[in-house]
């Protein structure tokens, strides 16, 4: 039996944050799978990392920055080429008000 780290209620909360929705069966399956995985991940608590600096990127260099110049960019036709939801030169979205 793995420890209960995440509850079904929390799974529902995280799903809302991630803009995903699941049926009851999926919620149950995710809860049990995430618990197994998170239980295994708790292995990291064996390590004392109090004085360790975190690593976000492994290569220590400053960002490569470009000159602020105007360069060719995509045409409106190219920008709109991957959706049928266009109206008068805008992306069409559901009503929000």
């Amino acid at each position: 039996m793995t420890k209960k780290i995440i509850t079904k209620k929390e799974v529902e909360y995280v799903a809302r944050l991630a803009k995903l929705e699941f049926n009851e069966e999926e919620k149950g399956e995710f809860t049990s799978q995430l618990n197994t995985i998170l239980d295994y991940f708790s292995k990291l608590n064996e390590l004392d990392t109090e004085k360790v600096e975190p690593t976000a990127y492994v290569v220590s260099q400053d960002n490569l920055l470009n000159e602020d110049e105007i360069k060719p960019s995509l045409s409106p036709e190219e920008v709109f080429s991957n959706t049928p939801y266009i109206q008068k030169g805008y992306f069409k979205v559901p009503k929000i008000m």
Partner: peptide, 11 residues
């Protein structure tokens, strides 16, 4: 954050 710190140790 914990994982990022352990990443340092692995590196």
């Amino acid at each position: 954050l914990k994982a990022q710190k352990v990443r340092t140790l692995i590196k």
